[in-house]
Design a binder for these strands. Structure first.
Lengths: 146, 146
DNA sequence: TACTATTACATAGCATACAATGCAATGTTA
DNA sequence: TAACATTGCATTGTATGCTATGTAATAGTA
């Protein structure tokens, strides 16, 4: 029996995800952020002052992962956590001046990473690839719920 | 300005990679192995007794990552490291009876993970998706070398 | 042969992911 | 309202990835 890594979707997807993370890491290093902070920053740039729970609802990661990431972001001066006006368990999360200031550069870095990755594909192929991946995500998420 | 996570290749690829790892993790848990050990196992099932360097040549990961993974595999009773016959720096890596015994089940688990993930795509679409990802990997690896 | 460079691997430190669990605050119900 | 359940978040432990660095052995060279 054989199992070929090069035709295993899981193997390839893991590999390409690490290449993306690496590419993004290098481009955003000058901004003082790291790839794991990107999803939270995207959400907070769109809407500041969310609670952890509200952020979680948007960010396909586990609560513990987000809590730890937020702690590092606070340490790095990207966010501050303030007490929630009506629920003492919760805290609202606010971007600092520093985090607000790097938004445009961070968008460019992410777009540039994607652009380089897909550089030798046609527009149609790029669209098809994204559509395929979204379908796989949908399939796997439905599976998980069972 | 906006940046849509749902149309960012990097974001989607990161997400789908985590879903694959999760799916595989659940299926191979009964075998006593974890996803990170899979690539090394695949290589050793094909050819036992490789050195770390020889394994590295096959496994798109860094040397330090492999060294740590091998240490956990030894701890878990999957491999033993023996002294190299002619080079005292190197060690050859050998699968245990336990690791040899789960080969077929592990193949099935990985194939099943891939099958479920691609369940709602046609054969042609699956082939195209794999081809696309391989092209992206090639592009990004060439980029890294610059 | 003595020095130096290279090689093979290990280790340390960190980021990012997860599951499991703890804890205080809030909600619900008898 | 006291007891219990739920919620929001933090903490702990582990896996997996990376970079940087250490160490011992080997290879190459003056």
């Amino acid at each position: 029996m054989k199992f070929d890594r090069m035709t295993s979707a899981g193997y390839l997807v893991n590999h390409v995800a690490r290449l993306f993370a690496d590419g993004l890491r290098k481009r955003i290093a000058p901004l003082g952020i790291v790839p794991g902070q990107f999803p939270a920053l995207l959400a907070l740039w769109e809407k500041d002052g969310l609670t952890q729970k509200e952020l979680l609802a948007v960010l396909d990661i586990e609560q513990a992962t987000l809590a730890n990431t937020l702690t590092r972001m606070e340490r790095d001066g990207l966010i501050v956590r303030k007490e929630h006006p009506s629920d003492a368990r919760a805290r609202t999360i606010h971007l600092t001046e520093k985090a607000r200031g790097i938004r445009a550069d961070a968008y460019r870095a992410a777009a540039e990473t994607n652009r380089c990755a897909l550089a030798d594909m046609t527009e149609d192929e790029q669209d098809l690839l994204l559509e395929f991946i979204q379908r796989v995500i949908d399939t796997m998420q439905k599976d998980k719920e069972q």
